[in-house]
Design a protein around this nucleic acid. Structure first.
Lengths: 132, 132
DNA sequence: AATATATACGACTAAATTTGTCGCCTTTAG
DNA sequence: CTAAAGGCGACAAATTTAGTCGTATATATT
């Protein structure tokens, strides 16, 4: 049922790792090893999280990333949007390229559903996901 | 944010069409025309809905499909599962082919989130989606 | 009975998206 | 000044989704 993609999974695993450690910096490589995710992709995901203020990057020897945002204040909605730049339940809700739009018989229903789903995802924090 | 796929959209448009008409049978071709969806794909989707007891198929001249289930009793969850045979938030929750499973650091969190999402989708009926 | 109109379904192709890789650049502690 | 880290654009591979084709089956109408 509309799956999480790998990037989101990697992000979750990384965040879990950060949330469980002390808050020393951890390198992308270390995260990749700890999570068994591909190093390059992990690096990308961490960069994205860092550019959105979830992590803080530190250059140089012994550099890496550090968690700087309280995960109880980051919603699943926010994370998914950050990590895969996402959009909405249907393509036409973001890209205005849907040539069916004018004749589409379910625009309003889908917008309606979309809003409900987004509100739902906004209501769940990452912390809540981790602490079952 | 984890999009609806075309088949689900076509199914929604078809169901909307049925729910708004009188309950005469409507052919796949007519539905496809009314919804501007590709005929073959529409036919498939209708077949699936019919094999799952949402629609009833009638062969022959003037045949077609008729809505036989109360849409207030069909959840979004049910529809998505019927139409794209779907599964769960993550591949590993259904296919047991995820070779990371044993070392995956977020199985439980994802199962947790998955359940919440499913419960949410189960709580919304198709009728509710249509009547904004 | 013949025919036209429908559904049913397996196999295939094409398109789009997702996932992963490579190479090169920048920053900074030691 | 160098090794270890992050940053980023472009590309390639893999997977998934979407759409097509062909053929078989059912049945109301004539």
């Amino acid at each position: 049922m509309s799956k999480l993609n790998k990037k989101v999974e990697y992000a979750l695993m990384a965040l879990k790792h950060f949330s469980e450690g002390d808050d020393t910096t951890v390198s992308a490589k270390d995260i990749a090893e700890a999570t068994h995710a591909p190093a390059e992709v992990t690096a990308r995901v961490l960069q994205t999280l860092s550019s959105h203020g979830i992590l803080k990057a530190e250059y140089g020897l012994h550099g890496g990333y550090r968690l700087i945002k309280d995960l109880s204040k980051v919603s699943v909605y926010e994370l998914v949007n950050i990590v895969d730049g996402s959009t909405g339940l249907a393509k036409c809700l973001s890209d205005k390229e849907c040539d069916l739009l004018k004749k589409c018989t379910i625009v309003t229903p889908v917008e309606n559903l979309n809003k409900k789903v987004q509100d739902f995802y906004k209501s769940i924090s990452i912390e809540e996901v981790f602490h079952v």
